[in-house]
Design a protein around this nucleic acid. Structure first.
Length: 515
RNA sequence: CGGGGCGUAGCGCAGUUGGUAGCGCACCUGCUUUGGGAGCAGGGGGUCGUGAGUUCGAGUCUCGCCGCCCCGACCA
């Protein structure tokens, strides 16, 4: 590992960068060594996707490790990203009639224990508080892995009549799951999320709720995070512990792996029976309400990173980007145009105030090239370069992060056009992800075709499926590390033969490698 | 939780048969620069992940623990 290899890597990176196309000669420099990150560069996505991911998360200052295993710190830039995601989803949750409230972090063991399947499902990953101060607790307290149990326990007291229904609530909270294997954002011991919980008079109403909220997640993913998703129903073996059924949205990362990005569960009356929740219906008969729950977590930030990022770093969709437009002034101290550059920057700030999240990078002593790299790493959707050369003709240079598209734009009226330019960037970001999803999706008819589909690289395979656990197990066994992500809502098998047992099937299974 | 790998400055690394720690980048100051990760000069920063052991002496050898990464198992 000498400086020679180091130089090769730099040369490759220059030509490989979306935005930094340079000379042909540099592209001929041989690539001889697996790249490693250094203080100025991230690992190449193509070399080591997992390492690239960690590099980007840390270098872009989204999050970092802490002394506590599996627990990350979310840094301001990463938290701003989560806040924008959270605020957008919160608006949807309220739009659909829900109210926010807050339940305790600690849950008595006896509360947790009432629903058998649920306890069994979560037992391996619950963290316990056994001591308060110096005193041993009589009953240990679980740090919530999710809040169904305490919510049910409390609502048992609050629900009496059909007039109390539906109950439509949500909470934004942290939860704790003692995961064996953690990854920044994707699977952390503690994470942030929202969990919605609802109680309904009828099964039909509860089922509609589950659909409605899954569609909010789809909207969140597609329209805000620019991540096309596939909605569907989880198989029996993959559903939430204690649920009647579970719905999910599945997104494709740029390495072709699937990421479950939101889930919505129909509980039926399983929990309400276990927790003794009853109401008098319209005929004065005592009934158990039908329940749902649904959640979306900071995990989706990991999805956002992996769905759009490239070798230069993050690529953020404008709607959630903490900074939508960065202006890099080119200041030449010995030339008279310095004032013109600053005036242009101030004009952009003034004219975008309140409409666009724009920042002028006025840091001194840092050359433009470094600023470009800095903001590309952070995924800022649009960059304006304000330099004397362009400004002499009243122009600035505009570069779009997602595809490197560059144009010279008149400063006059640019601020007013930025919202449209950002909307276009949002669209291009989504389209690019959609294109990849389409390119790497394949229909298969049997296990041989399934194996073939995964030979070259991970893919999203769709196939008729009879929905039995036996056949699901055979799919898992057929190709290393793949499984059924969900049973697609947008497709029907219409009696086509199951890819395993060939019996007539109604469902089309989405089969992929998953994070 | 099993197998493997790795922990030395913020990042990437070097550190000889054990002799008290170095390089590049980053950081600070000054000057010169500024259209793709600048140059020169000066400077700061490390109880070598952690605890114990062996030794006159441990970054280096032994053992435990902790953390991170990879492959499994587990998992919403």
């Amino acid at each position: 590992m000498g400086s020679r290899n180091h130089r090769h890597r730099i040369a490759l990176r220059k030509t490989d960068s979306v935005l930094g196309r340079t000379s042909v000669r540099e592209s001929l420099v041989p690539y001889t060594q697996v790249s490693m990150a250094d203080s100025k560069h991230t690992t190449l996505q193509s070399e080591d996707f997992d390492r690239w991911y960690v590099d980007v998360v840390r270098r872009a200052e989204l999050a970092d490790y802490t002394p506590i295993k599996g627990c990350m710190v979310i840094r301001p830039y990463g938290f701003a990203l989560w806040e924008r995601t959270r605020d957008a989803l919160d608006a949807m949750i309220k739009r659909t009639g829900h109210e926010n409230m807050y339940f305790p972090l600690l849950i008595p063991e006896s509360y947790l224990a009432k629903e058998a399947e649920h306890v069994k499902g979560f037992a391996p990953e619950v963290a316990w508080v056994t001591q308060g101060g110096s005193k041993q607790l009589e009953e240990r307290l679980a740090i919530r892995p999710t809040s169904e149990t305490i919510i049910c326990s409390l609502y048992a007291d609050w629900i009496h009549s059909w007039r109390d229904l539906p109950v439509l609530i949500n909470q934004w909270a942290n939860v704790c799951r003692w995961e064996k294997r953690t990854r920044l954002f994707l699977r952390t011991t503690e994470f942030l999320w929202q969990e919605g919980h609802t109680f309904h008079e009828t099964e039909v109403e509860a089922a509609a709720e589950v659909d409605t909220m899954l569609d909010c997640y789809r909207e969140m993913a597609e329209e805000w995070l620019a991540m096309p998703v596939i909605s569907g129903r989880k198989t029996e073996s993959e559903k939430f512990a204690g649920a009647g059924y579970t719905l999910s949205i599945e997104a494709m990362m740029s390495d072709g792996w699937a990421l479950q990005s939101g889930t919505s569960h129909y509980f039926g009356r399983g929990f309400s029976k276990a927790y003794g929740i009853t109401f008098a219906d319209r005929d004065n008969n005592l009934q158990h309400p039908f329940q749902t729950s649904w959640g979306l977590s900071t995990r989706i930030i990991g999805g956002l990173i992996m769905a759009h990022g490239d070798d230069a770093g993050l690529v953020l969709p404008p709607r959630v980007a903490p900074i939508q437009v960065v202006v890099v002034p080119i200041a030449r101290s010995h030339e008279a145009e310095g004032g013109i550059v600053e005036a242009a920057c101030q004009r952009l700030e003034r004219e975008t105030s309140g409409s666009v999240r724009l920042r002028v990078d006025r840091r001194e002593g840092i050359r433009p090239g470094e600023k470009f790299a800095h903001w590309e790493l952070r995924g800022v959707p649009l960059r304006i370069t304000a330099g004397p050369r362009d400004l002499a003709d009243g122009n600035v240079t505009l570069v779009r992060r997602v595809d490197g598209e560059q144009s010279v734009e008149p400063l006059e009226g640019l601020a007013a056009r930025l919202p449209d330019l950002l909307a276009a960037a949002q669209r291009v970001t989504f389209d690019r992800a959609k294109q990849r999803l389409d390119d790497r999706s394949v229909d298969v008819k049997d296990l041989d075709e399934l194996k073939q589909a995964f030979e070259a690289r991970p893919a999203f395979a769709s196939a008729p499926f009879c929905n039995t656990t036996e056949c699901e197990d055979q799919i898992k066994a057929a190709v290393h590390a793949v499984g059924i992500r969900n049973l697609r809502f947008d497709r029907s098998a219409s009696g086509a033969p199951c890819l395993v047992c060939a019996k007539p099937s109604q469902h089309v299974a989405l089969i992929a490698r998953a994070y």
